[in-house]
Design a protein around this nucleic acid. Structure first.
Lengths: 140, 140
DNA sequence: GTGTATTTATAGCCTTGGCTATACCTGATA
DNA sequence: TATCAGGTATAGCCAAGGCTATAAATACAC
């Protein structure tokens, strides 16, 4: 492979990582809304904000983006709900999170640290890598 | 633990992930500058831009931020160089990247996928997790 | 049913990290 | 050495994701 090709490939990797990053917040919010709906039967803006550790207008903005992306529905002053697509995404994200935490623990990471790091790591775990993690966990 | 405590803890995790993210680009640029210096003896803005897959002014801006953070030095129309701190960071980042790739491969991730995913994952791997990875790789 | 407290929305600001277009150096060549 | 091509900087734009302050709507208590 020429040096130029390597450079292009590296640029692609960075582009991919940037794109994953733009999905990450969306995923976090969707999962959180799903959690709140399961726990309390509703997802209020105030709860979303406090669980995400952001100010309330930030949560409002994020929900607007979820709506724009077709992942959630919300009427003013009412709670937030997930579309089918949003709910499916939430399930995938939750499963991936659990797998990442389990993998980290399996290779010797302390449980608390695993939870902390998984929050950032999970968004960059591709389907192939996720499959490998599951295989590894199964085969122990 | 009360529900409120759990919520606070979760908010902290998100805050941590957000902070890690703000370091990630800095780390990528520092490592790239280090690579270019090693390969070509100099790090030109144009090369940085093409390897990062961004437009040239974006690279210029990033270098300005590196300077602001005390990681690099640069004079207009001259190349970019790393401070001692920047060079040390580059070394740590490079080592961490290698360890993450190695760990992914060790648990069964295909090599190419490992390289792809590591680019995003590495920035969220804490020192504790890194240590666990190294331990795991050694003990096989 | 009125008034107040709480919750949500809106306005407006900041920084980061992208971009394009354009101006400005610098170095190589004729 | 004058010119010009290429590399770099600057200006100015955008979207995302934070924030505070404030307006508006809802819900609850009396």
């Amino acid at each position: 492979m020429t040096e130029r090709d390597e450079s292009l490939q590296q640029a692609d990797r960075f582009a991919r990582a940037r794109e994953a990053q733009s999905m990450a917040l969306l995923e976090d919010y969707v999962e959180l809304v799903s959690d709140l709906l399961a726990e309390h039967g509703e997802a209020r803006i105030a709860d979303i904000a406090s669980r995400m550790g952001v100010a309330q207008p930030t949560a409002t903005k994020a929900v607007a983006r979820l709506k724009r992306e077709g992942l959630a529905t919300a009427r003013p002053y009412r709670g937030v709900f997930l579309t089918d697509e949003g709910a499916a995404l939430a399930d995938r994200v939750r499963a991936r999170h659990r797998t990442v935490v389990a993998l980290l623990i399996a290779v010797g990471v302390p449980e608390e640290t695993a939870e902390l790091d998984a929050e950032g790591i999970e968004h960059h775990v591709s389907d192939r890598t996720l499959a490998a993690f599951e295989q590894f966990l199964k085969g122990r």
